[in-house]
Nucleic acid binder design. Structure first.
Lengths: 336, 336
DNA sequence: ATCCTCTACTAAACCGGTTTAGTGTAACAC
DNA sequence: GTGTTACACTAAACCGGTTTAGTAGAGGAT
């Protein structure tokens, strides 16, 4: 540390600059000299050295399936808002759903001494000694906090919307088996359908299969659906991307959206609003969920939970009605 | 370090585990004991301590306008591919084009001892002591490497495509003044137009203005364009998002895309392909640019450039023809 | 003159490794 | 028996701060 080229010990300088109570006895005059020198020399204490001594890194790790994908990107936006504001930085790692990476990255991040971890849509069963918050991942380990969507409400919002528009024959695009939300959401849909006395026909359910690129996930399965010649007037897709793929497949088959078939997506990623027609979708407040996760992880760092209890924080979805849904054809809608 | 609970000094353990040549004289038997103990105790050397001594952090900083936005997300995907593979992690900071943050974040990242910096679409004029690679930012400082698109080629690809489809009255949506690509691209378009003897009418040029949210950037200006009643048969937008906004505005005005007006975007972000109709656009190889930036920054770290020369690496665009462009109405197209 | 109490600092330990310069011992040469 | 070398390690410095325990010196009380 070069600052005591001008008189004092490094201890004094450190004490003064950090405003330690031990420095109370140091006269203002000396303090001012220190501050002035720090400014003149443009002194920036070495963060690594400080981290070593204080055992604080002010870093947290973020695990996502893939950074470049809209869902993760939106969540990260919220995470970052909160973290940078609180003086933290974050390290990101994309595991692309590869089991070995899901295993390895948390270890690597721990070696980097991150103070907490946020796992986005990542299966989790490890028990690690730092706070972990999972966003919509199926978490089995104890002691982690989960941010989850109220899937029941989400299913109701979508189905009631379609139901009130007169749709009775609704096709469903189910998520990939590796996605953590698939199962809960599917069950929620089943329950919501029963409440509405809506029949879920097996021949109108298809499941996504491809992995990451997810280019035209919904495209293929919708073609399959159309090929089966089962009649339907609406599709409820697992996510916005598959909904967009579905719309394309419908168009190619001469179906108009929404006049012939209504389509509801899920997530409300940025491009849902950019679609033409705009996509009606169930919004997950992704940015807020990210922010919430960051807040939670910071709180857990500040005050380590005494009891390793698993908590869950439920966030509410919101139906965003755009132009991809309308009254069912050949049937009298009840309300709009 | 707990590992020498079983016999040796920490120095020996470190030497052995790091495969230092100094450890050559240590018999294999001892080495094996060390390795075994490391495994049993699940020993992970503290990265912070090591960083302090070796002055290596294996971290690089990434500056972007906004993480949650498609352009930055795609670039980050490429950056991450390369970095994680090479054992590096990265810290991200979003400056939202705020001048104070653009000033501050590089400093914060340097305090964190990042070994290099990648600036995405970020104006840059500082001269800092670590390698910097800029992706499509207007960089003025010396010593930094820029990854830039061949804008001339990009403009030609788009204009020639439209020209050959018979379009002569083409409207242009120009980028925001803060975006680093705006000016070069505009000049490139001008030059390409002259080469084609295409007249650029001032009344057919509009400029984006809003800042980040960019929800319907192109929407407003296109409405303005339509309101001016100037006739045009095609729009070349500054980016995909404004192109999507333009399409929406056109539709609302009863214009069909592409039958009445063809639209060309720029970037080829993920949702361009998801559009209905699929958006014809000039692709920037964003992921590759990110990867290239990461490779370059790592190379500069390994072998610091002796001469602080500014280099530029030019990448080639590619025209992706989808469904938003077709032959101009009321005119004989030359070729399809 | 002696003791006490403040004031204004600082010496030195510490964080957890890496790295340099040695050191003790055994084997070998002469 | 003595000098030399190779072997198998280790002491200690070091990275750059933070933090604890303590100390020198001035001034006041007795």
């Amino acid at each position: 540390m070069l600052a005591e080229h001008l008189g004092l010990s490094s201890a004094t300088v450190s004490l003064v600059l950090n405003g330690s109570p031990v420095a109370d006895s140091i006269p203002q005059k000396t303090k001012d000299r220190v501050f002035a020198a720090a400014r003149d020399f443009n002194y920036r204490p070495n963060f690594v050295a400080r981290s070593l001594r204080t055992q604080r890194t002010f870093m947290i790790g973020v695990l996502v399936p893939e950074v470049s994908e809209g869902y993760a990107a939106a969540v990260m936006g919220g995470i970052e808002d909160e973290l940078l504001q609180e003086g933290y930085f974050y390290l990101v790692a994309s595991h692309r759903h590869r089991a070995d990476l899901i295993e390895e990255y948390p270890l690597l991040l721990q070696r980097r001494s991150v103070e907490g971890l946020i796992a986005v849509d990542t299966p989790w069963n490890q028990d690690i000694p730092i706070p972990v918050v999972a966003i919509s991942g199926r978490a089995q380990a104890k002691g982690i906090t989960q941010i989850v969507l109220d899937h029941q409400r989400a299913a109701e919002l979508a189905l009631e919307h379609l139901y009130h528009l007169g749709h009775r024959r609704i096709a469903f695009i189910k998520g990939q088996s590796f996605s953590s939300d698939t199962e809960v959401r599917w069950n929620a849909i089943g329950k919501a359908a029963r409440n509405l006395k809506l029949e879920m026909r097996p021949e109108l359910s298809v499941q996504l299969e491809g992995d990451l690129p997810l280019l035209d996930l919904g495209y293929g399965v919708t073609h399959k659906l159309l090929a089966s010649r089962s009649r339907f007037t609406a599709i409820f897709a697992f996510n916005d991307i598959s909904a967009m793929g579905a719309i394309r497949a419908l168009r190619e088959n001469g179906k108009r959206v929404p006049e012939d078939v209504s389509v509801v997506g899920f997530d409300d990623i940025q491009s849902a609003a950019f679609q033409n027609p705009g996509l009606t979708t169930v919004r997950q407040p992704l940015r807020r969920m990210g922010r919430l996760a960051a807040e939670t992880v910071l709180r857990n760092i500040a005050a380590p939970a005494p009891h390793k209890s698993s908590r869950r924080i439920v966030v509410e979805p919101e139906l965003v009605v755009r132009e991809s849904t309308t009254a069912a054809p050949l049937a009298k809608p009840r309300r709009s």
